[in-house]
Simulated scan of single mutants.
Amino acid sequence: MKKLLGLLILAFILISATISTVAPAPFHSIEGTWELQSFYNYDDGVNISDTVPTSDGYRQVKMYYNGKIMWSRHAPKDSLDWFGYGTYKITADSLIERLEYGSAPMMSALDTLRVFRFELELTEDTYSQISYDEEGNRTFSENYKRID
Rank of each mutant, 00 (worst) to 15 (best):
residue 26 P to M: 06
residue 36 L to V: 08
residue 104 A to V: 12
residue 75 A to V: 12
residue 134 E to C: 00
residue 135 E to N: 14
residue 128 S to C: 03
residue 144 Y to D: 02
residue 91 T to N: 07
residue 78 D to G: 07
residue 55 S to L: 14
residue 95 L to Q: 00
residue 110 L to Q: 04
residue 84 G to P: 08
residue 12 F to S: 15
residue 83 F to R: 06
residue 110 L to A: 09
residue 89 K to T: 15
residue 13 I to M: 12
residue 128 S to H: 03
residue 80 L to C: 06
residue 28 H to A: 13
residue 127 Y to C: 04
residue 131 S to T: 11
residue 30 I to A: 01
residue 120 L to W: 04
residue 128 S to Q: 07
residue 77 K to W: 12
residue 121 E to Q: 13
residue 89 K to C: 03
residue 7 L to K: 03
residue 118 F to S: 12
residue 46 V to T: 15
residue 71 W to K: 00
residue 83 F to G: 05
residue 138 R to N: 11
residue 74 H to S: 10
residue 143 N to I: 06
residue 105 P to G: 10
residue 143 N to A: 05
residue 141 S to A: 14
residue 24 P to W: 08
residue 81 D to L: 13
residue 29 S to D: 13
residue 124 E to A: 15
residue 130 I to T: 06
residue 11 A to E: 04
residue 46 V to D: 09
residue 26 P to H: 04
residue 74 H to I: 15
residue 118 F to C: 01
residue 62 K to E: 11
residue 129 Q to Y: 02
residue 7 L to R: 05
residue 92 A to G: 06
residue 53 P to Q: 03
residue 104 A to H: 09
residue 136 G to S: 07
residue 27 F to H: 12
residue 69 I to T: 11
residue 126 T to F: 08
residue 64 Y to I: 04
residue 68 K to S: 12
residue 91 T to K: 05
residue 145 K to P: 03
residue 119 E to D: 14
residue 72 S to Y: 13
residue 42 Y to A: 02
residue 86 G to P: 06
residue 82 W to D: 10
residue 26 P to T: 14
residue 17 A to H: 05
residue 116 F to A: 02
residue 34 W to V: 02
residue 14 L to G: 14
residue 98 R to S: 14
residue 15 I to E: 07
residue 36 L to Y: 04
residue 92 A to F: 02
residue 41 N to R: 10
residue 105 P to N: 08
residue 105 P to F: 08
residue 48 I to N: 05
residue 13 I to A: 13
residue 10 L to C: 10
residue 80 L to F: 07
residue 47 N to F: 02
residue 12 F to W: 05
residue 73 R to D: 07
residue 25 A to Q: 13
residue 112 T to E: 09
residue 138 R to D: 01
residue 83 F to W: 14
residue 43 D to K: 13
residue 3 K to L: 15
residue 65 Y to W: 06
residue 25 A to M: 13
residue 79 S to Q: 10
residue 99 L to P: 00
residue 5 L to H: 03
residue 64 Y to V: 03
residue 15 I to S: 11
residue 80 L to Q: 15
residue 71 W to E: 03
residue 118 F to L: 04
residue 107 M to K: 07
residue 119 E to N: 07
residue 116 F to Y: 11
residue 51 T to Q: 10
residue 92 A to L: 09
residue 101 Y to W: 10
residue 2 K to C: 05
residue 84 G to M: 05
residue 134 E to P: 00
residue 7 L to F: 13
residue 126 T to I: 01
residue 145 K to F: 00
residue 118 F to K: 01
residue 57 G to Y: 05
residue 43 D to F: 08
residue 116 F to W: 07
residue 110 L to G: 04
residue 87 T to C: 03
residue 131 S to V: 07
residue 95 L to K: 00
residue 6 G to R: 09
residue 137 N to F: 09
residue 22 V to E: 05
residue 5 L to E: 08
residue 29 S to A: 12
residue 9 I to W: 01
residue 18 T to L: 13
residue 79 S to A: 12
residue 49 S to I: 12
residue 53 P to M: 06
residue 80 L to D: 15
residue 98 R to Q: 11
residue 90 I to F: 00
residue 13 I to F: 11
residue 134 E to W: 01
residue 88 Y to I: 09
